[in-house]
Design a protein around this nucleic acid. Structure first.
Length: 303
DNA sequence: CCCCTCGGACGTTCAATGGG
DNA sequence: CCATTGAACGTCCGAGGGGT
């Protein structure tokens, strides 16, 4: 997941230098400390948080379990929320549905496994860190206590994105594939911009510009008190998308049912939201009768 | 300059395999 | 049975090119 990169213009919220268009930052994704317990979100720290003595390292890229169909088509970053941020931005929240996953092949024969080179019993996934001082991927432990050993994390008590842990919200439960799409209301409590988080920083997960505090401090809602449908009424509280959504009725269906041009997202000038991305219909992949042929293109590509 | 396209790097999942 | 392996499958970064 994800991180944020500051941009000189306030609207960029993406962590990647990628086109502003799809710079829909998926902070939600990185928030859910779900999948493996400890989130391995990407680029968690602004360079300001990373000791300069250490080479800037990218933490692992974090992926959502299941991108929505729109993001999948666009090969763009999605998040766990539905509608995802990108769809919300393009006003196609109602079309934001999980993509369908192929079933994995079975019965594939495999050759004999390579022998381990005799050393560690580290598993492939829990590989013993050869690095004595592994990068502070999280810069924290779940307990909020800085991990023992190694270099002191740059932001020991910060959750991903630098949100202080105690108010970071609940640790979502792990869901297995097939479970109903979990939704955990996520409360975004913005960190204070740091002097070091300046525009243009790459993959630092922090440097986005923040709207005035009154715009991005979400109301505190105790976990569990928000009814499930809420996400459809109130957009995810996040500093970069302080958008109050209307019920789906807000989104007019496409004429003929599909593939009309996405509405252009509101202009950056008036919302502080990333809107540099226009989704202009003719080129949207939804018109994917061509180009990457929508899903077909994806399948064809065999990504 | 902005935005879209898409190749390919990278992450995740999980069946097959191997060892205790 | 469980740990490990490794390939299938998925996500999405980011370069490059077209459009405005």
């Amino acid at each position: 997941m994800a991180s944020v990169r500051a941009h000189s213009d306030d609207d960029r919220i993406d962590q990647s230098p990628e086109s502003a268009s799809d710079s829909v930052q998926s902070q939600l994704t990185m928030h859910s400390a779900s999948y493996t317990g400890l989130p391995t979100h990407m680029y968690p720290f602004s360079s300001g948080f990373v000791p300069t003595s250490q080479p800037q390292m990218r933490s692992k890229r974090r992926q959502v379990k299941n991108a929505c169909t729109n993001c999948q088509k666009a090969c763009k970053k999605c998040d766990d929320a539905r509608p995802c941020l990108r769809c919300v931005k393009y006003g196609i929240g109602e079309e934001c549905v999980d993509s369908q996953r192929k079933e994995r092949k079975k019965g594939i024969k495999r050759g004999p496994y390579k022998k381990r080179d005799g050393k560690s019993r580290a598993t492939s996934t829990t590989e013993a860190q050869p690095d004595p001082a592994p990068p502070p991927a999280m810069g924290m432990s779940l307990s909020g206590v800085p991990p023992a050993g190694g270099t002191p994390p740059a932001a020991s008590f910060m959750g991903p994105m630098g949100y202080p842990l105690p108010i970071y919200g609940p640790i979502p439960t792990v869901h297995k594939p097939g479970d109903a799409s979990p939704y955990h209301p996520t409360y975004y409590v913005p960190m204070q911009p740091t002097p070091s988080s300046h525009p243009g920083q790459e993959h630092d997960g922090q440097g986005y510009s923040l709207p005035p505090p009154h715009q991005y401090y979400p109301p505190y809602i105790p976990y569990g008190t928000m009814p499930y449908p809420t996400p459809y009424l109130v957009s995810h509280h996040r500093p970069d998308m302080p958008v109050v959504m209307q019920p789906h009725a807000q989104y007019p269906g496409y004429p003929n049912g599909h593939h009309a041009p996405y509405p252009k997202p509101p202009s950056a000038g008036n919302s502080g939201v990333d809107v540099t991305a226009s989704v202009n219909g003719s080129t949207r992949r939804e018109d994917h009768a061509d180009g990457r042929e929508a899903i077909a293109g994806i399948e064809g590509r065999n990504m």
